[in-house]
Design a protein around this nucleic acid. Sequence first.
RNA 1: GCUGGUGUGGCGGAAUAGGUAGACGCAAGGGACUUAAAAUCCCUCGGGGGCAACUCCGUGCCGGUUCAAGUCCGGCCACCAGCACCA
Length: 803
Amino acid sequence: MKEYYNHHEVEPKWQKIWDDEKAFATSTDYSKPKYYALVEFPYPSGQGLHVGHPRPYTALDIVARKRRMQGYNVLYPMGWDAFGLPTENYAIKNHIHPKIVTKNNVERFKNQLHSLGYSFDWDREINTTDPGYYHWTQWIFLKLFNAGLAYKTEMPINWCTSCKVGLANEEVVNGVCERCGSEVVRKVKSQWMLKITEYAEKLIEGLDSVDYVERIATQQRNWIGKSTGAEVQFALTGKEDKLTVYTTRCDTLFGATYMVMSPEHPYIDKYKDSISNWDEVCAYREEASKKSDFERAELAKDKTGVELKGLTATNPVTGKEIPIWISDYVLMSYGTGAIMAVPAHDERDWDFAKKFNLPIIEVVAGSDVPVTEKVYTDVATGTLVNSGFLNGLSVADAKAKMIEYLESNKIGCAKTNYKLRDWVFSRQRYWGEPIPIIHCDKCGYVPLKEEELPLMLPEVESYMPTDNGESPLAAMTEWVNVKCPKCGGDAKRETDTMPQWAGSSWYFLRYTDPKNDKELASKEALKYWLPVDWYNGGMEHTTLHLLYSRFWHRFLYDQGVVPTKEPYAKRTSHGMILGENGEKMSKSRGNVVNPDDIVRDYGADTLRTYEMFIGAFDQAAAWSEDGVKGCRRFLERVWKLQEILTDGDKYSDDLEAKMHQTIKKVSSDFESLKYNTAIAAMMALINDFYKKGSVNRAEFGTLLRLLTPVAPHITEELWEANGYEGRLYNAAWPEYSDEKCVESTVTIAVQVNGKLRATIQAPKDGEKDAIIAQAKEAAAEKITGNIIKEIYVPGKIVNIVCK
RNA sequence: GCUGGUGUGGCGGAAUAGGUAGACGCAAGGGACUUAAAAUCCCUCGGGGGCAACUCCGUGCCGGUUCAAGUCCGGCCACCAGCACCA
């Protein structure tokens, strides 16, 4: 018998053996069935691994190890999303090249991950900062550029006053920079943009063909924000131009009593001569332009605005002349930058009309309260009134009829809109992929030739962005000044770099063929491995990273580069691990747990088991060191089963059903995010072994095979020490049969009038009448009066209803 | 405000499809072993009442459907996360 379980010896021993035997190398034999399990690759921060990291990594390690035992060729890779601001900021502060900082951090992360016994195929490790990798990130950018999906535009962008970079709208949280928390202001800059909006529809449609956790799919849909409505043209009194608006409620057109334009609307300048209160208008615009989108939103409670005196429009269905206002609650970035206001049936318009005393006309009847007192927005029950040819129709019918009318009279059309905005793709930073574009005064933006890639990130003296918002690369004149590839004249390189999202938008493709220097990955490899079978990541990435990578993938599909429309067949997400006090772990709260300490004191297997047992996988869970101890105790009890191990090459009769039930439960729980109940089932199983006082070799072998994905080191050691054949990582996953899951006798609950009164033991396929008779006898004292009903649910419950 | 999620013992959490609420673990209490402690093993462990067999109450709150509701329906409340005037 083996000595007391010592993880200090057992864990490094097996990690070395797995390395030496290349136990988890992915096969390139493409005739085998494949399984591609993916976790989000980490940003190698200076803090090292956090206890949050092992949660998803262990979960999919379990899936990967199980699938290997089931005969799949598994790809479970790991890499580094290593470009990014914290590294650059650290480099600036400490005068160390970000390349060195990255190298050190990666080394540390890798050692930490290795100590946890993950079955990653390290031969396929990738790093986004490696020129052999960003070669292809740049290549994809050129593809996007050549397809017209990358463009440069002067636009007000979100400018972080501290990071000195432009941010995508998606990166701004509550008006402050998502990364550093500093104030974000508006600044006009020439920016590279990617036309993700052109893919809005495809990105919505694609969600129907994949298996995403429902709330993830919902968030993606809401973020894209599709709405269907109509564009309607309003004639401007005495002008040639029409003012076009977008509306989702064209049924209420008869109730449009005024219009509102965004303060940035181009018609305001165009018709300035007609506007009699120009000074007032200018003052309002000035004030609005100072506000960021966020301030505009914050000040929203109280509506502000100015009427454009001298400029009016005509309601195309009533023929009435209506005033035009400007207000900052109308955004230039959505729809057409102008709206028709129907105060009776839109909350914001109602507030605005009340404040400025504008007419409110009811066109949908159905409210108990007059619309002058309360806005009525219900679309399900109302009926159209005061609306000419729409009178008497439901809202839905009225919409259809109105669109017909608009189109036949050429004053409008059906129209779909999306909330999604284009992706701001430039960063005024050093530590990112250089954008492979040259600007020539004569030829415009000229892309580099594919053969010139990768465009290497040059060495610079200082990584500090310049105060005027230029990237540090702008100071490198010998790098910046080049000849135009088209005309040979003087030209300049683009000095902005790509955002961190770029490298992570396609990394899962590179894992399939990571060393290929001719293509991003071979067609063969892509065809075999795609799509990713299961991708797990944090909830915080369900809108940004997930949407961006789906966009790039779909674009590459359209270009014939990848074989599938969608990159990920299945997407799940894990909950956060909180401190012992239930708060988010942070240095300032002093509740950070270092995984290295847990590995040292309790072992990697204990950490892995605990993180899976801690609670429902998709929910946040608070750390508990006592809980860690409980898991260590469980593994020790598994170890000590050796003391009661007996011979036997098949399950003993009294445990056979339990064995089959456990295999079934563990097998399905591992695939459905229920790691906690899978472990509970194994705990219950060993409790049965101890209760019985013995476990035979067949039973013990099955337990080891079920447990090894969770706790691979201890189980591998027990497998070897007790003379089981071969390596456990190569063993076959245990089989079960549904038939054998059922015990020969079952316990049936007996209820009288719905209350539990007794339980009886009965054969599993007993006759209904016999069981009911047995139940009546068991609960005889509780049955009073006449029996009016007897319910029997086979194998579960008998309910006697009496009165 | 809108959207999504959650609400079950002292704690983390179980409970396919409505069918014995509290699996599994932690903590706590009692006992065994020990000179003692740790470790380990055994017992108890939702609340009230009873000497006891037993009994009543109990899954955020109010109501409903059902032989039967943590689970379904209607109406609330609380907390967490995301979004922010999207026409």
